[in-house]
Amino acid sequence: MRGEPIIEVDGLVKRYGQLVAVDAVSFVVNEGEIFGLLGPNGAGKTTTISVLSCLTPPTAGTAKIAGLDVTRNSLAARSKIGVVPQEIALYPTLTARDNLVFWGRMYGVPERTLAERIDELLSVVQLAERAGGRIDTFSGGMKRRINIAAGLIHRPDVLFLDEPTVGIDPQTRRSILDLVKDLNASGLTVLYTTHYLEEAEFLCDRVGIMDEGKMLAIGTRAELTTSIGATTSIDVRADGLDDSIVDWLSSLEQVTDVARDGDDLTINTTAEANLLPVIVERLAAGGAKVHSVDVKVPNLESVFLHLTGKSLRDEGDQDAAATKTNALHG
């Protein structure tokens, strides 16, 4: 699934006076990926997207879209990307269709395919029957979906989504995330910024973690957690445990630490997936009766905490993060 690099950012710096909004950031996004930029508000994600959208010239460094430099080849680069800004950047007094027609023309979509393309997009965002409605009569979620559709009108190679789920209800959030997944499945490369780590975990193939203008780490979730040495902890509660099982577990290569306290057993491991069936089997064979097993997998939160020494959740709105967890898993 990994294709050629389509976004190449190298040593990107953006200064506003004294303030360094983006500080020597480099990363590559490959064709077909969903790449997430994760970080708290003010981390420099939106500024990075602004530079990539050709809205802001970089102070130093380069950024390329499909090999086109965003400063020197700005117009050509812009036709490769679709941008979905944080705000509902649509004309409120025009209908959904008229908005899409206008943006289509701005991207130079040929007139004869434009209407067809709009119908297609409206059904993708499930607003076909509201095509003639004015944007200012739409609900927040409907506006978001048209906002995304406007970024897709010219079949871009890459879609930039800048915090598209801020301040909306769980159902809409869920439908937008599903939409992004579907779009990606059909081959679209996505650059997605968020400060919700659950979204990044759910959606992104690879994640770049940003804070205070710096790119702290890049990789898949597994790569990131491994890189900071985070382990999975497995808590087992069972009758009839003895020290022989502790000795056996300690001898296993993947296990980094074992501790027993009465009926409670805590195992730290780097490879939880392979280990769990083996442990359960061994316990059963030893005559132990298992009451509960609790697996604590390391997540991006642990990575962020490890890298910055602060929690991402403390930055964002905790309520929203909690509801999102429900939306994702419930």
Binding site: L55, R78, P85
Partner: peptide
């Protein structure tokens, strides 16, 4: 303010 101008700047229009 409505950011439609910024959006216009992300399209291939000089």
């Amino acid at each position: 303010r409505e950011r439609t101008l910024a959006r216009l700047f992300t399209t291939p229009v000089a």
